[in-house]
């Protein structure tokens, strides 16, 4: 079975409309305030495929900002697993790389059934980035601008057509019924793809090697006074955590309506908040801001590599866009490298 195809741009809307019959089609749209958001697509032509990074990242379709987990009442408890079928089109390579890591975090021996039921029903169609943002630095991390694995389908924009690569059985399934829309790639298509990716590589403004930073921290060359100065600029807004495609912390709350009816739900939470670790009797293990800043950085730069063999950062640049204190990972890495 071949796993590379060519799709003419004129055929894209028709094909997506066919896919949409079996699943909710989600793609990048421009919101009223100008941000790029992923949302259900009503008019396919309104999708913005050559766009800057979405805010927030598409992690919200697997780990929503607010997720209802259980409904409880006198009669009993219902688990609210979301089994809705979704196809998310136009996802960036860095976000696909993040999802591959989220799969490992939520999977494994202690599998998170809420994440997994969404994950199993979601297909990701990524687009290799021809035109990385000034804030992007995936190329140094191997998490973009194009990928070898992790996607169901990967599109590369070749001008009037896309080169389409299938990375999973689900990916192939999306093409199978519509073979008449696709061609097999020829040498010219591959040459064009090579060239597009090459020129994309040269657009990156940021050259960041997190490995150097990791080595410096491990060697004890980053004094606490440095982290103190970083922490002093943190507004504790939590933006970095909310926008990061790899941050996973949540809080669980019970919402009671009346009698004994209600909902147990989880909400995004952030380790940058002071109360995050608060215990009974007002004991605060990470009471000082420097402890929380260091924890975020060390988790991403030291402990992710230890646990998963990858950094807890895919270079999407969202914290650079978001952080009002300019203490995002790219800025800090640049200072330390």
């Amino acid at each position: 079975m071949k796993d590379e195809f060519v799709l003419s741009k004129t055929n894209l809307p028709y094909w997506l409309r066919q896919l949409r019959k079996k699943a909710d089609l989600i793609g990048p749209l421009r919101s009223l305030n100008g941000d790029i958001i992923f949302s259900s697509i009503v008019n396919i032509h309104e999708m913005i495929l050559d766009c800057p990074a979405s805010i927030p990242s598409p992690k919200e379709f697997l780990f929503p900002q607010k997720e209802e987990m259980y409904k409880f009442s006198q009669k009993g408890v219902n688990t609210l697993n979301d089994n809705g079928k979704r196809i998310i089109f136009g996802v960036r390579s860095c976000d696909i790389s993040a999802i591959a890591l989220l799969d490992r975090f939520y999977g494994g021996l202690l599998e998170d059934d809420f994440y997994m039921s969404r994950r199993r029903n979601t297909c990701f169609i990524s687009i290799a980035c021809n035109n990385p943002d000034p804030t992007c630095f995936c190329s140094g991390l191997g998490t973009g601008p194009a990928l070898k694995t992790g996607f169901d389908l990967q599109f590369t924009d070749l001008g009037d057509r896309y080169l389409v690569q299938a990375g999973s059985r689900e990916g192939l399934r999306m093409i199978n019924g519509f073979m008449h829309l696709f061609l097999l790639p020829e040498k010219a298509d591959r040459d064009d793809q090579y060239e597009v990716l090459l020129s994309s590589q040269s657009i990156f403004e940021k050259r960041i090697t997190l490995e150097n930073v990791r080595q410096k921290i491990l060697a004890g060359k980053v004094p606490d006074s440095f982290w103190e100065s970083v922490a002093s600029r943190c507004f504790e807004c939590g933006g970095c955590v909310y926008e990061c495609p790899l941050c996973t912390c949540f809080n669980v709350i019970d919402w009671k309506e009346k009698d004994n009816k209600g909902t147990r739900m989880r909400l995004w939470d952030t380790c940058m908040f002071k109360g995050f670790t608060k215990m009974a009797g007002n004991v605060l293990p990470a009471g000082k801001k420097i402890m929380r800043t260091k924890r975020w950085y060390f988790h991403k730069l030291l402990y992710y590599p230890e646990q998963f063999g990858r950094f807890g950062c895919v270079g999407c640049g969202r914290c650079t866009i978001t952080c009002p204190g300019r203490i995002d990972i790219a800025t800090i890495a640049n200072k330390l490298d």
Partner: peptide, 24 residues
């Protein structure tokens, strides 16, 4: 070690400290 815990299964991050999850 006592820590604030929300999930007990290494997911919510509340008990996380220096690369270790107190709960798991």
């Amino acid at each position: 070690i006592e820590a604030h815990m929300k999930c007990g299964v290494g997911k919510c991050g509340h008990c996380y400290s220096d690369g270790r999850y107190v709960c798991t």
